[in-house]
C-alpha cells in the first residue's frame, strides 16, 4: 500500500522538473535494458512454446478445429484422469503441509548454525534423482519389502500390507520428493518473524497457544502459501512416481500425454491435454490469489 501511495508523489515531482524527468527516464531505460535478456529468454523459451502449444492443439490434420477439446470433454477417461491428477496433487499438498509446517517451525527456532545443518538433511534427498528415490521406496514398501518383512516378523501383522501400486505408494513417493518445496519457503518466512512479537503477546496476557495462533501463524502464512502452491503445481505434472508406484487408478494426466506423444505420435491431442491442464491450473492460481494474495507470497509487499 505504502509503495503505491508514494508513486504519484514522485511522478508529480518529476512532471514539474524536466531535468529530473530526463534523468528518471534514462534510469528507467537502463533498468529495462538490464531486464531485457531475461525478458527475451522468457519470450523465446516460455511464451513462444506456450503459444505454439495452443496453436498445435487446435489443428486437426491441417485445419483449425476444436475436435481435440471435444474429445477430452466427451470421453470419460480424460476428465477422470484430470480429476485424479488434481485430487492427488491436493492430497500431496495437504500431507506436505502437515509434515512440513512443524518441521519448518522447529528449524526456525534453532540457532542459525544448527538450523543450517539440519536443512542440509532436508535437502539431501532433494539432490537425489527421483528415479532412485522411487525405486528405493519400492524396495521398502512392496509386498515382500523391508517394511512388511519387519512388521511380519514382529508379529504386528499377519498379512503383508498393501502399500505399493495404490494411492498410498503414490502419496508416499510424491510427498518424499516434494516436502523440501514446502519446508524451504515456510522456513524462510518463519525465520524472518520477529520473536519479540510473540513475547510481547505473552506479556500482554496471551497463552503460548494463543500467541502462536494469533501472532505467529498468521505471520507464517505467506511462506506456507508459497510452499503449498509450489508443491501443488509441481505435483500436477508428476510422472515417474505414479507410473512406478501407482495402481491402475493412479494414472495422472502427464502419463496420458506421454503416451499420446510416444506411441500415437498425436502431438495435437497431447497439446490439447496440456492446454487444459494449464488452463485449470491458472484458474486455481487466480482463486488462490484472491484468497491469499500472491504479492505476499512473492514478497512484493511485506509491509
Amino acid at each position: 500500500m505504502a509503495v503505491t501511495a508514494r508513486r504519484p508523489a514522485v511522478g508529480a515531482q518529476i512532471a514539474v522538473d524536466p531535468r529530473m524527468r530526463k534523468l528518471y527516464l534514462r534510469r528507467q531505460a537502463a533498468l529495462f535494458g538490464l531486464l531485457l535478456p531475461a525478458l527475451l529468454l522468457l519470450l523465446v523459451l516460455f511464451v513462444y512454446p506456450i503459444l505454439r502449444l495452443l496453436v498445435t492443439s487446435v489443428y486437426d490434420q491441417g485445419i483449425i478445429s476444436l475436435e481435440h477439446y471435444r474429445r477430452i470433454v466427451e470421453v470419460d477417461v480424460y476428465l477422470r484422469v484430470m480429476r485424479t491428477t488434481f485430487t492427488i496433487a491436493l492430497q500431496v499438498t495437504a500431507i506436505c503441509l502437515v509434515l512440513g509446517y512443524p518441521l519448518a517451525y522447529f528449524l526456525s527456532t534453532l540457532r542459525a548454525r544448527t538450523a543450517r545443518l539440519l536443512l542440509i538433511l532436508v535437502l539431501i534427498p532433494f539432490w537425489t534423482s527421483i528415479l532412485v528415490r522411487t525405486y528405493a521406496w519400492m524396495v521398502l514398501l512392496q509386498r515382500q519389502g523391508v517394511v512388511n518383512r519387519w512388521l511380519l516378523e514382529l508379529g504386528l501383522i499377519d498379512e503383508p500390507l498393501r502399500m505399493m501400486y495404490n494411492r498410498i505408494g503414490v502419496l508416499v513417493g510424491m510427498v518424499h520428493v516434494l516436502l523440501p518445496f514446502m519446508v524451504l519457503p515456510a522456513f524462510a518466512v518463519m525465520r524472518g518473524i520477529d520473536r519479540d512479537l510473540i513475547r510481547a503477546a505473552q506479556n500482554l496476557g496471551a497463552t503460548p497457544l494463543q500467541a502462536f495462533l494469533r501472532i505467529f501463524f498468521p505471520l507464517s502464512l505467506p511462506g506456507v502459501a508459497a510452499g503449498s502452491l509450489l508443491v501443488f503445481i509441481l505435483a500436477l505434472g508428476f510422472f515417474i512416481t505414479p507410473a512406478l508406484m501407482g495402481g491402475r487408478t493412479e494414472i495422472m494426466i502427464a502419463q496420458l500425454m506421454e503416451d499420446q506423444i510416444r506411441t500415437q505420435l498425436n502431438f495435437p491431442f497431447a497439446a490439447a491435454l496440456g492446454t487444459v491442464l494449464l488452463a485449470v491450473t491458472l484458474v486455481i492460481f487466480v482463486i488462490y490469489n484472491r484468497l491469499l494474495g500472491l504479492d505476499k507470497i512473492f514478497g512484493g509487499d511485506v509491509s
Partner: peptide
Amino acid sequence: ALEELQERFDNWLTA
C-alpha cells in the same frame, strides 16, 4: 485401431 482402443483401454483401466 490403436487410437480408439488405447482410449477405450485407458477408460477401462482407470474405471
